[in-house]
Design a protein around this nucleic acid. Sequence first.
DNA 1: TATTGTTATACTCTATAACTATA
DNA 2: TATAGTTATAGAGTATAACAATA
Lengths: 148, 148
Amino acid sequence: MNAGPAPLPTVDAVAQLGFAVQRMLENRAAASDLSVVQTRMLGVLRDREPTMGELGAFLDLDKSSVSGLVERAERRGLVSRFRAEHDGRSVRVRLEDDGRRLIDTAAAEFAGDLEGMLGALTPAERTEWTRLTARLLAADAAARGIRL
Amino acid sequence: MNAGPAPLPTVDAVAQLGFAVQRMLENRAAASDLSVVQTRMLGVLRDREPTMGELGAFLDLDKSSVSGLVERAERRGLVSRFRAEHDGRSVRVRLEDDGRRLIDTAAAEFAGDLEGMLGALTPAERTEWTRLTARLLAADAAARGIRL
DNA sequence: TATTGTTATACTCTATAACTATA
DNA sequence: TATAGTTATAGAGTATAACAATA
């Protein structure tokens, strides 16, 4: 009689998967000399030139935190600030070439890490896993839409 | 002709799930007035009384970082330090009652968040999702065992 | 007056380097 | 000498409150 390995509780599985993803992100960010927050910011700026306030909304940060975050990135030449056209109070943030190179590399390597892990599944399993996970994400979005 | 919603790429699904889990952890930690790091530390101390050095190994932090982390938690009465018996250089860390209450609550609520999300799956789907996810985690562990 | 952003301040978290105490 | 831990220092990241400029 052998029951095999103890089954992993589902709650533990989802928690551990979350930690694994976070660890990959931290490692890839650090390899590009970026913090996770700087990486998120550059990611947001890949297809937007938001105002400071909009950037804070994307990142869920106070405006004063955004000022510091952008200031440090600007000092490294990763982003730049410029005044908005139609509102003299607003400042917009733009990704510079160095910043784009950095985020493109980090994002590609992070995606590669995830792909490597997903290689453990057959194509059919992968399809099924993705279908179920999309349901989990929809449930989370619904819960946040209601609760928050 | 309607192709339905655009299928979520698997890489995006795993990334988003990771972010969702991290967000839940951050929110539950903050609700207990804890940072994620403090929460992780209290979690480690739930079933151990490690030395400062061992605690640093668990958390992957420099010894000086651990000193500060423990100092701040001790000031709040969440943990305490005491000299080890057999080595006069070592200091061990113990979870105090207030700390245990805090981490037990935060952990239960975090698990509740995850359970809530998992409620989107039927029991059969849940079993299948967990089986596949365990394979992903095993692949990640193998990759880290080899690369690190 | 209201909004947008910056600055001053305070705290957490992190690491490196220098130090103390013990082995 | 080597190891365990603390402390001094520096910097990122965060928020609150006070401020300046613009609307």
